[in-house]
């Protein structure tokens, strides 16, 4: 693989994992958020070669078979998405948050999720979903 090939392109074009979305292409919108060895990263900024030998988690890896994760279920029940384009990134970021802090405060949710833009929900549904998932 070429050294300048981005992780987002490797995921989407080479591996067919189209769940990860590209929005701004400069690491500010968070649509392309993935976990690399559990750490939250933007796949539009990360050269794919840097993740060689490391575990990459995308939205496709959140459900266990047919069973949605508590966050995925809560995003549907609480209105955590509308158009859904930012949702893979929101879910990945929220998954990382709940791995880091079992019961984050409202301020901790706001601080952590600041890097994931959503134009549809006004974020209220996302906050409700995260709180419902940790309940």
């Amino acid at each position: 693989m070429r050294a300048d090939r981005r992780l987002i392109d490797a995921l989407r074009d080479d591996l067919g994992c189209i769940g990860t979305k590209e929005g701004c292409s400069i690491g500010v919108c968070g649509a392309c958020s993935v976990l690399v060895d559990g750490k939250l990263l933007s796949a539009c900024l990360m050269p794919a070669v840097f993740v060689s030998g490391r575990a990459v988690t995308t939205v496709e890896g959140l459900a266990r078979g047919d069973e949605l994760s508590p966050l995925q279920d809560a995003f549907i029940r609480e209105g955590g998405f509308q158009c859904g384009i930012c949702t893979p990134g929101q879910l990945i970021a929220a998954t990382a948050l709940l791995a880091e802090r079992r019961r984050p405060s409202d301020d901790e949710i706001r601080e952590w999720m600041m890097g994931n833009l959503c134009r549809c929900t006004g974020y209220h549904g996302i906050t409700r979903a995260i709180k419902a998932a940790m309940a």
Binding site: T20, L68, Q72, F75, I76, G84
Partner: peptide
């Protein structure tokens, strides 16, 4: 379309 949108 909820399941599709949260699973990618």
């Amino acid at each position: 379309e909820g399941r599709d949108k949260v699973t990618g």
